[in-house]
Amino acid sequence: MRLQGKTAIVTGAGSGFGAGIARRFAAEGARVMVADINGDAAQAIAAEIGGLAQRVDVGSGESVAAMAAAAEAGFGGAPDILVNNAGITHLPAFMEDVSEADFDRVMLVNAKSVYLTARAFVPGMKAKKGGAILNVASTAGVSPRPRLNWYNASKGWMITATRAMAVELAPFGIRVNAINPVAGETPLLKSFMGEDTPEMRAKFLSTIPMGRFSTPEDMANAALFLCSDEAGMVTGVAMEVDGGRCI
């Protein structure tokens, strides 16, 4: 029960890595707000773990502000933990062939959302003199894959933002870290690969020394440590949870 008495918000928690993190946090004693653009998926996970459900578009300032208000009402204050997990990619393509609309959408969801949630939740964490923020970045931000150029760039932005946030917020007792997953069995996997075939899976797996995709449980274990008091001296870290891909 390493998160006993803590409150947490996990975005993109209706499926994939976010759902795994929400489940683990709840199992460790946290009261979790399951936030997702798919309201039905958020409701299902929240019902499973006894948490709060919130439909949110993390790229909309108005929607993020509504999530903050709901958290204030549901938790009685700012959350102890914020996990910026919601993310999106564009389909594999040469950089010049990615549409402007797809570029804007990737940057909105993967980058601007971190600014919007910081604007909404950092003041409350400062008032509490503590908190933990976890950004779910990617190995793509460290070791980019060809034809995912603007997705790679958005995750590199997130890693730099994590370090910048950590330096600025450390005097207020707020820790900010990131995890860098390798491709996993989530709804985004097909988008990364372009097509989900045995041949394409084998090609992706050949780049991961441990020979398997990551799982929501892998991410949940890393997230639990970084957001718990056990990591009280850890901030500004972008932890690779990647089976050795970035070595």
Rank of each mutant, 00 (worst) to 15 (best):
A22L: 09
G12W: 01
S113Q: 10
I133P: 08
D229Q: 12
G211D: 07
A202T: 13
K129V: 00
V234T: 14
L52V: 14
K129R: 15
D97I: 02
R212C: 06
G77K: 13
V136H: 08
G184W: 13
V241A: 05
L3I: 01
W157G: 00
E96N: 07
F213G: 05
G124F: 00
T7W: 02
Y115I: 03
G12H: 02
E28I: 05
T197N: 12
I179M: 13
I49C: 11
E185Q: 12
K128H: 09
N221H: 11
A231H: 08
I159K: 13
P187A: 11
P198H: 12
A118I: 00
S214L: 05
A69D: 14
M107G: 02
P187L: 11
P144H: 02
R163Q: 15
I247Q: 14
S228Y: 05
R105V: 06
N152F: 03
A13R: 03
P216T: 04
G12I: 03
P92D: 11
Q54H: 14
G20V: 05
M165G: 07
A27D: 11
A178S: 15
S60E: 07
N177G: 09
P216N: 09
G14D: 02
L189K: 06
G16F: 02
F213D: 10
A53T: 07
M193Q: 10
M33S: 03
L91R: 15
D36C: 05
G59F: 02
A30F: 11
A166L: 06
G173A: 10
G16P: 00
G29P: 08
A231R: 05
I9S: 05
A153D: 01
G14V: 02
L226P: 08
S191F: 03
A222F: 09
D102E: 15
L108V: 02
S63R: 13
K6H: 09
V167Q: 08
S214V: 04
E96V: 06
G51T: 13
G18W: 00
T207C: 01
Q4E: 15
E62F: 00
I174S: 09
L148A: 05
E217R: 03
V98S: 05
L3Y: 03
A71N: 03
D242C: 15
N84K: 04
T139I: 15
A70M: 04
A153H: 01
R147N: 13
R2C: 00
A101S: 12
R119Y: 01
N135P: 10
A183M: 15
D102S: 15
G16K: 10
G211V: 08
D196E: 10
T186Y: 12
D97A: 08
M95A: 14
E48P: 06
P198V: 14
A178G: 09
M219H: 06
A69K: 14
K112Y: 06
A137H: 07
F75L: 09
R2G: 14
T117H: 11
A231Y: 10
F213Q: 04
N152G: 04
S191W: 04
L82F: 09
A118P: 00
A22W: 06
